[in-house]
Design a protein around this nucleic acid. Structure first.
Length: 858
DNA sequence: GCAAGGTC
């Protein structure tokens, strides 16, 4: 029952103003007149504000109201609701789509029709972005239905402030259909791709693998998952690398860093250590300089979400929920904003004054007002619709509904006050030491003025003291040769993911947190604390795309879409052209997926099986290795834990062992006559090195080891990169093979016959090629008896087991004398042929992809 | 039961 009735007594021209949300309508009314009247409408949130105004010298009655985002939404007609009945290709390519006003927006439609039928003019105050322009057309269409003669204008504003609103009214323009069409194109493409690919994947995989969720596909959610999977793969394929460095410590326990940082060659570091070793150093420089720690940029949504996640440990999704609540209660400004610079029209002093009575930071605010204020830095993002997030009303802790709400308000208020403060100032002192040819340095910091750091508790700037030395001083030092190793990438945090999505244009400020939520709802990823990790399903899905050659999880899909939308927005292309082109390209991909559906099931299943021990809830990546099958035959370094243990032992051994002890009578370089340095390596081998590096010579008095004995897991050198081959383990084949230790940079491998179950390196060498020998364990049902129990696996050496470097897709089989294996064709034993694709997820040959998938062509 | 974009 429509009990709404608005008054129409006045004879003045009536101008209907429509904003995108209730708050903007309210702000416009406030800006234009404090004496406005407020009327209820059929939609409880969307009030109607009325006021008298002089518009271009004409007295008019302004009616200001709002919608709540889009009025219309795209959907497939009822007949397509059955997933089983329709080929996803039809859903993608041919099914008609309806664009109607959603049921929950019908009250707004009635409002607009009612007001438009009474008003003479319509001014569209939708946000000044593409979506806003499209909503403007939706509003205009509804209003024109009720009043075909209504005169329409578009207001362009960068903030809802007095100056901007007045300026917008003085320079009214017309809505831009190209901008709006680019949105319609995006909507249609997203729906068609999302619905068709989701139906295909779900029907293919859900029942087969007893999955509780649908297996959705979306051009934002899947690239989001792609980032999470990529990081996990980087962690799991990480191979630790050892490095060495020289450390210098003075008698005040101050440690100076080597200016060469560290080197990956133990020999060179040992040599340099020998050459510079002494017990005193000269202070060659003491440099002091003033430094600043910069205050933050004004707060946009993305930054707010990152800060909430990182500093408050509140998820982006929850933080937005809390911010929206604070906004609705009038404590903060609109929280969905891309802008990180304040418009000159906003009165910052007034906002600070509102905080002057605050029990926690009132004094700080007063101090800012009186003398410490400095204008905020200007960021480079501006959505032309909303200012950066800032407090609009003071809130004290007891007014907050809970701790998290208070934390969010506090973050926003403190951030704003920090923006209006001065940078922190300090003094940095760097001491440089010279020890023979090597230099070492140490930098200390003294904070002189904390300024914004007083209020901004989220930033740290730690002080560190340095000794009070003068240039030319000679000081006593202790030099040590140290060893370290590179660390794997850190697990993906939510804040990092938000940053990656923002950088790659995945989602918008208002939707990024929703996509992160979606991948969790779909059981593609889990979040523990601030760490996001892929689940088995998420890994298996992305890996299946990867292995089968699809780039559906790559972020550039969205970038191409954005580029095409821009062409429509600029009027260079028709929306139908880009919809057609995109859908045609995606049809090719969907058809390929359909053709490969058996392979998809097999690949997806193999990954789930291989990942059955993968602990998706464990954040500790050191204790959770190996879990992910790498793209090369699901390989993992079987011996990795042993390698690490050995490294530790070696380090301990090294610390007891001073290099000086290892010196034997030096020899003379045969090229330059310099006195050579003898160095003992960690493996005990002695080496004579010329200081000018003319020659490096193994000490003949020592027991000369084959290089492969440097590390007990190393076999012989890779014929491609000269690093060592190692015993690896294929989780899917459940057998050993030899893989290059430089994987994934080098993918050289040697596979063994299926009859070989496992291999073990032994302390014997091949008499023919000097490579280390292996003892082999054969499958139980393999009966052939060999005359020897030790085998050489160096390609081309032994006649009993013939092995080969696996360099291309046709040579992925090793052969066994007397028992020839299948060659070439994929036998179904492997879930895929890894050599048909680039193995390396991160160094994908894009040109190749582009050839295969025209959708990604620019 | 499908997407992503507005907004509450």
């Amino acid at each position: 029952m429509n009990n709404f009735k608005t008054s129409t007594k006045s004879d003045k021209i009536k101008v209907l103003n429509v904003a995108e949300k209730p708050s903007v309508a309210r702000s416009i009314a406030n800006v234009l007149s404090k004496d406005h009247r407020i009327e209820e409408t059929k939609s409880p949130f969307n009030k109607l504000f009325k006021l008298d105004y002089r518009l271009k010298d004409v007295e008019v009655e302004m009616w200001i109201t709002s919608v709540t985002g889009h009025l219309k939404s795209l959907k497939y007609p009822q007949k397509y609701q059955s997933w089983e009945k329709w080929d996803p290709i039809i859903i993608l390519k041919e099914a008609e789509i309806e664009n109607n006003i959603s049921t929950d927006k019908q009250n707004l439609e009635l409002n607009l029709k009612n007001f438009a039928s009474i008003c003479n003019r319509l001014i569209l105050w939708l946000d000044c972005d593409r979506e806003g322009e499209n909503i403007a057309f939706e509003v205009m269409e509804v209003c024109r239905e009720a009043n075909p003669n209504i005169q329409v204008n578009r207001a362009h504003f960068s903030a809802v402030t007095y100056v901007d609103v007045r300026r917008a009214l003085d320079t009214l323009k017309y809505p831009d259909e190209n901008l709006s069409n680019s949105v319609i194109a995006r909507q249609e493409i997203d729906l068609r791709i999302g619905a068709s690919f989701t139906r295909f994947q779900t029907l293919l995989l859900q029942k087969q693998f007893n999955l509780s969720s649908i297996v959705s596909y979306g051009p934002c959610q899947i690239p989001t998952l792609g980032f999470v999977v990529q990081r996990q793969k980087e962690i799991d394929s990480f191979v630790k690398e050892q490095f060495w460095f020289i450390q210098s410590e003075d008698d005040q326990k101050c440690i100076y860093n080597w200016d060469r940082t560290h080197l990956f060659d133990e020999l060179i570091v040992a040599l340099l250590f020998e050459r510079c070793y002494q017990e005193s150093a000269t202070v060659i420089n003491v440099q002091q300089k003033d430094v600043q720690k910069w205050k933050p940029y004004p707060l946009c949504t993305i930054e707010f979400e990152k800060l909430a996640s990182k500093k408050l440990k509140i998820s982006a999704h929850k933080a937005m929920e809390l911010a929206e609540r604070l906004y609705n209660k009038g404590y903060i400004s609109y929280p969905r904003t891309e802008t990180n610079k304040f418009p000159p029209t906003i009165n910052l002093q007034t906002i600070i004054r509102d905080q002057q009575n605050h029990p926690v930071w009132g004094e700080y605010a007063t101090n800012l007002i009186n003398f410490a204020f400095e204008y905020p830095k200007a960021g480079n993002k501006d959505d032309k619709a909303h200012p950066p997030i800032h407090p609009v009303k003071m809130m004290i802790e007891s007014e907050a509904q809970n701790r998290q709400e208070w934390d969010v308000y506090q973050l926003i208020a403190r951030h704003f006050l920090a923006c209006c403060s001065k940078n922190a100032k300090g003094s940095e002192t760097t001491i440089t030491l010279q020890i023979n040819d090597e230099t070492f340095s140490k930098t200390g910091l003294v904070i002189k003025e904390k300024n914004y750091l007083e209020i901004y508790i989220y930033d740290e700037w730690s002080q560190s003291q340095v000794p009070n030395y003068q240039q030319g001083d000679s000081i006593k030092i202790k030099l040590t040769l140290q060893k370290g190793s590179t660390s794997p990438p850190k697990p993906m945090t939510e804040a990092e993911l938000i940053g990656l999505m923002d950088k790659n244009g995945i989602g918008t400020d208002a939707t990024i947190h929703e996509h992160i939520n979606t991948i969790q709802d779909r059981e593609y990823a889990t979040k523990r604390g601030q760490i996001i990790k892929p689940t088995k399903i998420g890994l298996a899905l992305v890996e299946s795309y990867e292995i089968l050659g699809f780039t559906l999880h790559q972020p550039f899909l969205r970038a191409v879409m954005e580029q095409r939308m821009n062409e429509v927005a600029l009027g260079k292309k028709e929306k139908s052209q880009i919809v057609q082109a995109t859908i045609n390209e995606m049809t090719i991909i969907l058809k390929q997926l359909q053709e490969k559906q058996n392979l998809i099931i097999k690949t997806f299943g193999s990954y789930l099986e291989a990942l059955k021990n993968y602990d998706e809830d464990n954040d500790n990546d050191d204790n959770n290795q190996p879990r992910i099958p790498l793209d090369e035959a699901e390989e993992t370094t079987q011996n990795q834990p042993k390698v690490n243990k050995k490294t530790k032992n070696q380090r301990n051994k090294k610390s007891d062992e001073q290099p000086k002890n290892s010196i034997t009578p030096p020899s003379i370089c045969q090229f330059c006559n310099s006195l050579c340095v003898t160095n003992k390596q960690l493996n005990g081998k002695l080496i004579q090195i010329c200081p000018k590096l003319c020659q490096i010579q193994e000490d003949i008095n020592q027991n000369s080891h084959h290089q492969s004995t440097q590390n007990k897991d190393n076999c012989f050198q890779c014929n491609l990169c000269q690093n060592f081959m190692k015993i690896r383990y294929s989780k899917i084949k459940k057998t050993n093979f030899l893989g290059c230790s430089s994987y994934p940079q080098c993918n050289q491998a040697i596979f063994l016959p299926d009859t070989v179950k496992s291999i073990k390196l032994i302390d014997k060498k091949c008499t023919k090629c000097e490579s280390p020998l292996f003892s082999l364990q054969f499958n139980e049902n393999y009966n052939q008896v060999h005359q020897t129990s030790f085998f050489c696996l160096f390609p081309g050496c032994q006649y009993i087991i013939k092995t080969d470097w696996k360099q291309n897709k046709d040579s992925n089989q090793t052969s066994f004398v007397g028992k020839q294996q299948n060659k070439g064709e994929n036998t179904g034993k492997y879930p895929f042929n890894p050599h048909q694709q680039n193995r390396n997820f991160y160094n994908k040959d894009k040109s190749n992809n582009q050839q295969k998938f025209p959708y990604y062509k620019n």
